[in-house]
Amino acid sequence: MKKQFILIVILFSINQAFAQHKKTNLNIVFIGNSITQGVQLTDAATEAPPATAVAYLQKQKNLDTVSFSNQGHSGYTTLDFLPGTGTFAKVEEAANAFTNKDALLIFSIKLGTNDSAIQGPHGAPVSPEDYQKNLKTIIDKLLADFPKAIVIFQHPLWYSPNTYNGAKYLQEGLSRLQSYVPMIDELVKTYAATNPKQVFVGDTKAFAYFEKNHLTDLIPENGREGTFYLHPNKKGAEALGRFWGMAINKIIKHNF
């Protein structure tokens, strides 16, 4: 009995050590627009989707430390994040600033809302082909400079078809936004061949969620075409962060 007990203790210790070894550390740079930035939230530092995504990830048993940088900028399009811009330089600075250099570096990208506008944001309207081209240019440079990093695309979010604030979106913009989704998915497939396990599709569910729950999860805003819905409120930001967190964790579990 004593030998059996000792054996059980040894096996338990091995299992615990193995489990500890399997835990993953993450450094995440969130790239996006005002939704990622958390505009109109009382405390964006803790309430914006990147913060709520990390709060979800920190509760997962397969993960250890999760550090992040919110590189969301209100009104920005894919053109604003192209290599050579000051914004892109800040993204790379954020990636280099993490103290744990052994952690898995992730670039989580959610762009497209401003690209889809009829007029207003930089370069809008951006065609689906140019949107995909811009994303590829961004990814290629990130992977060249951070060859061990991975990129995760979160699908863009629904906004009401009467959205018209300083920029003009409307139904035309929403339809264009939806045309970006297959361009993202197609781009990820091409990287599966050239850069295996480096570029992934993340969340695909938030669009439908916010379309269904916009009255409770998005902020009513006064626009030129009446009350429109575009930005998550605190409840919506928490929901979006959970969608992103679940998508990121699923990718980590299945691939790393």
Score class of each variant (00 low, 15 high):
202 G>H: 00
161 P>R: 05
196 P>H: 09
194 T>A: 15
173 G>H: 00
199 V>Q: 00
190 T>A: 11
158 W>T: 07
184 I>T: 06
183 M>R: 12
182 P>I: 00
180 Y>T: 00
156 P>K: 03
165 N>K: 14
200 F>D: 07
200 F>M: 11
150 I>L: 08
150 I>G: 01
180 Y>V: 00
179 S>N: 09
159 Y>W: 13
157 L>A: 02
202 G>K: 00
195 N>A: 14
163 T>Q: 07
163 T>F: 03
182 P>V: 03
186 E>S: 15
157 L>S: 06
176 R>F: 02
168 K>R: 15
158 W>V: 05
201 V>F: 03
164 Y>I: 04
165 N>E: 15
181 V>D: 05
205 K>R: 12
174 L>E: 13
170 L>P: 02
147 P>F: 07
192 A>H: 14
182 P>R: 04
204 T>E: 10
180 Y>P: 00
153 F>R: 04
190 T>C: 06
193 A>V: 12
195 N>V: 09
203 D>W: 02
206 A>Q: 05
177 L>T: 04
182 P>M: 01
201 V>Y: 01
189 K>V: 10
159 Y>T: 13
202 G>T: 01
154 Q>Y: 06
183 M>N: 10
203 D>L: 01
157 L>Q: 10
187 L>M: 06
176 R>V: 08
203 D>P: 05
183 M>C: 12
168 K>E: 12
147 P>E: 12
193 A>S: 15
160 S>G: 10
176 R>S: 10
156 P>N: 09
177 L>M: 10
207 F>M: 08
147 P>S: 10
201 V>A: 09
